[in-house]
Amino acid sequence: MATQLPLTSAQRTTFANRIAERFNQTLPLWLLLPTLLVLAVIQFYPGIYSIILSLQDRRAGAVEWVGFRNFERIFESAIFRESVGHTVVFLVGYVLVTMVASLAVALLLNQRLRLGGVYLALLFIPWVIADIIVGLIFGLLVVPEYGLLSPILSNPTLFPPKGLSIPSDPPPKPWIAGFPFPPAPAMVYLILASSWRALPFITLLLLAALKTVPSEIVESARIDGAGRLQLLFRIILPLILPTMVVALFNLMLGGINGIGLVFSLTRGGPGTATEVLSYLLYTIGFQRLEFGRAAALAVFMAVINLALILLTLRVSRVDERTT
């Protein structure tokens, strides 16, 4: 093919060239069009549909507009309130365990361990393992009597009075009526399994932030006589705070919506001890087929998600401005 030469004025008047010119002028639109179409069908339309569905009652086959009745019914139901409690307990535990553990690992990796790339990558394997599989792996470890951890768990001296069976032990009596704390052993285990999976990613985030802490600041603080803890709490943590907030929101988003682990590890049980909001959405929508109420719950969760992501955006923009 001959190389393209700049168009002469005579050529430019031809019809085909006019089209080509138009195409080039509006190129961004054509480049974006496929993406926007897909997003409209898969993201935008379902969002609108959920909102409409949440205002309707379709159980009898006929469509009836019921206003906010679905929302009222879901918010008033006992299982919703209980699930909110479970979700709060799960989120707090999940965020705390993951943040503290990731920070510890990141500090360790940043300080002296010069791990080769392969070892570092091995450490990060949990991150790419599917949540369903993580649930199965952790589930196998605590099968009563046969699981490899069961000798430890069923030891009555470690866990009085008669050992622990994670899949079946009911939650202890709550301290505050109506709020599921302290949680059931299954919930604690669910938190640990979730944190295990989230740890590599958060560690990576924090490690990247730690690398940006200037060594001069750390050095001068040390010369001024700052102890290790002082160094950590007064110097390092404030410097990586924006990243920690991003990590926090990231964890909360993942924690609210994560359902695979609940599916494969506890299925909401024992009883309803690990019935978090995401699993409740599944049970109402796809097991009891109460689409209106499920849609109301979905809208509620989507609003929380949007709020979280917009907050994240704000925080990370602050991050950009300061760096």
Binding site: L39, I42, Q43, Y45, P46, G47, Y49, S50, L53, L253, I256, N257, I259, S278, L281, Y282, G285, F286, F291, A294, A295, A298, V299, M301, A302, N305, L306, L308, I309, L310, T312, L313
Partner: peptide, 19 residues
């Protein structure tokens, strides 16, 4: 588009199921 990344698959599933 960035905000959409925060919308989980889960809450859209009712509509997608119907589709």
């Amino acid at each position: 588009i960035l905000a959409i990344t925060g919308i989980p698959l889960l809450t859209n599933l009712l509509a997608l199921y119907q589709m």
